[in-house]
Amino acid sequence: MNLYGIELESRLLLGSARYPSPALLADAVRASGTDVVTVSLRREGGGQRSGQGFWSLIGELGVRVLPNTAGCHSVKEAVTTAQMARDIFQTAWIKLEVIGDADTLQPDVFGLVEAAAQLCADGFEVFPYTTEDLVVADRLLQAGCRVLMPWGAPIGSGRGLNNVFGLRALRAHFPDVPLIVDAGIGRPSHAVEAMELGFDAVLLNTAVALAGDPVAMAAAFARAIEAGRAGFEAQPMESRDLAAPSTPVPGRAWLP
């Protein structure tokens, strides 16, 4: 998988929030085999560089950091946070979140497109957290994004893929754009489903961080994503209404 010119082995991107401890986060990252960890700036920042203790632990994981603008509700907030993130983590990558509804944490797609345009013009490589809406996706690509991250379901809800039809349409419309299902994944089976639809990767956080055993869950997701991808590449059969025997009648042993 290639994201903004960077070749990545793993198709799992892992969030770093809400783990019982940084040590368990580190173990989960290793167990997941991920190459990319997202880090929230806004909530953990506390201004200046006071989050350095946690950020340096992230730095020691030896994976690529994808800072995010989680919790930003306006274009200005998101852009400022992205600029801070670039200074702190020395990366042009930014996972762009502009939240439009406090209850569902649904993206404000209008603000998202505007912020994406500003950040892309400023040299950022933007990973926009969006809905499965085709038109919004198109506008984000026009704004300069070269990766899209549609939601499966609201952040942290663990509901899986709410709109499989919409996600399938998105995949079909943009066959060459890396598409990452971000948010709403609760179980490994949800990740398999996303990968079988042909999505390039899955980004998740809560499903691992709040699992009883985050390290074991990280490993489970790693396998689920591999299985889903392999299943997609192997071109699954179509489902049918009519049963079709796997052993044809003429081939069955004749028992007197």
Binding site: E44, G46, G47, S50, Q52, F54
Partner: peptide, 8 residues
């Protein structure tokens, strides 16, 4: 419970 050491 915030991952920073600000006393602000």
């Amino acid at each position: 419970l915030l991952e920073n050491d600000s006393h602000g």
